[in-house]
């Protein structure tokens, strides 16, 4: 057997949330296998990221600091990873399931003829095999899956695993050279428009959502006010998005975002199967709906059967008092 690797996804000089979650999950896998944990740190000006990866529990770091890796282009990242995996044959490679993380998994697996289990929500080690539990068929069923090749590749659902915490560990990284020249990369990043600092749905630990029951665009005001007090992100059902009351980025569900916050508060959402597909792995679900028979109550842990226009302002006031 050989080491467990983890993709230390970083941006703007920091390890992003799914990267920290991946380190936490990979540390557990490495300990169960009795192997070292190797952090893979690629980017430009990433000395600090390597230090942070040690601190979060990596035993070793393989780093590459190169301008071509600055924008995480897969054509720069992929070949370097493939070469490294061929050389070291890690037992497992754990990757946070961000958009860029999925590309990394797909590229490496295609080039090395390896399998991938995507979107894991739980991991266990059985002998030498890393078994992942993941939702399939839009979250309507679960599967326990594993891969057969020499390196087991797993991507993780955002927020399904706790972030690794500081251990005080330190070390010096093994710095390697990039293998692709800028001239050989056809894709050029010519612009980037950041999102600003609104809480993204997939990273949020609390989500307050509104559905058709909010009645119109202005019905999202009490939803936003509660979200503001809780530092939460605002979600929506497709019915509310289709009605044009709130932009599509807020849609939770099978054809929207898949989220797993600690707390999901559904307001005026009936709980259609497609909505459930996107939020059923939330830790605590609260439903506020005036219809006590709404299907959302089958999934919810706590419910209030009442008018959301009365409940939400009262809830906001109560939290303001107590937070």
């Amino acid at each position: 057997m050989s080491a467990v690797w983890v993709w230390v996804e970083n941006r703007g000089g920091e390890i992003i949330a799914v990267g920290k979650e991946a380190i936490g999950a990979a540390r557990m896998v490495a300990d169960e296998l009795g192997e070292d944990l190797v952090g893979i740190v690629f980017g430009h000006n990433v000395a600090g990221i390597a230090t942070a990866a040690f601190d979060l529990g990596c035993d070793e770091v393989i780093g590459c600091d190169d301008e071509t890796l600055d924008k995480s282009r897969i054509e720069a990242v992929g070949p370097l990873l493939v070469a490294q995996i061929q050389e070291h044959e890690p037992a497992a490679f754990i990757i946070g399931g961000s958009t860029r993380g999925r590309d990394v998994a797909a590229w490496v697996a295609a080039d090395l003829d390896l399998g991938v289990v995507t979107d894991a929500v739980a991991l266990e080690v059985d002998g030498d095999v890393v078994k992942a539990t993941r939702p399939v068929y839009a979250g309507k069923l679960l599967a326990t899956a594993f891969t057969k090749g020499s390196t087991q590749i797993v991507t993780l659902r955002s927020r399904a695993f706790p972030q690794a915490e500081s251990t005080g560990n330190s070390g010096s990284a093994d710095w390697i050279d990039a293998v692709v020249d800028e001239d050989d990369i056809p894709t050029k990043v010519v612009g980037f428009e950041g999102k600003g600092n609104t809480v993204s749905l997939t990273d949020a630990s609390i989500i307050v959502s509104g559905g058709r029951g909010v009645g119109g665009p202005e019905g999202f005001e009490p939803v936003r006010e509660l979200a503001g007090v809780l530092g939460a992100a605002v979600g929506a059902s497709r019915a509310a998005v289709d009605a044009g009351w709130i932009p599509y980025d807020h849609q939770v569900g099978q054809t929207g975002k898949t989220v797993s916050p600690d707390l999901y508060i559904a307001n005026g959402i009936s709980g259609a199967i497609q909505h459930q597909a996107g939020m059923r792995t939330s830790k605590i679900i609260v439903a506020i709906n005036k219809d006590g028979e709404a299907p959302i109550f089958k999934l919810a842990h706590y419910g209030i059967v009442d008018d959301l226009f009365k409940v939400l302002p009262a809830l906001t006031a109560e939290f303001k008092k107590r937070l």
Partner: peptide
């Protein structure tokens, strides 16, 4: 929406 992997496009490209 069955396997929900999102791997196929990059793998076809490779």
């Amino acid at each position: 929406i069955d396997g929900d992997t999102g791997l196929t496009p990059v793998q076809v490209a490779r």
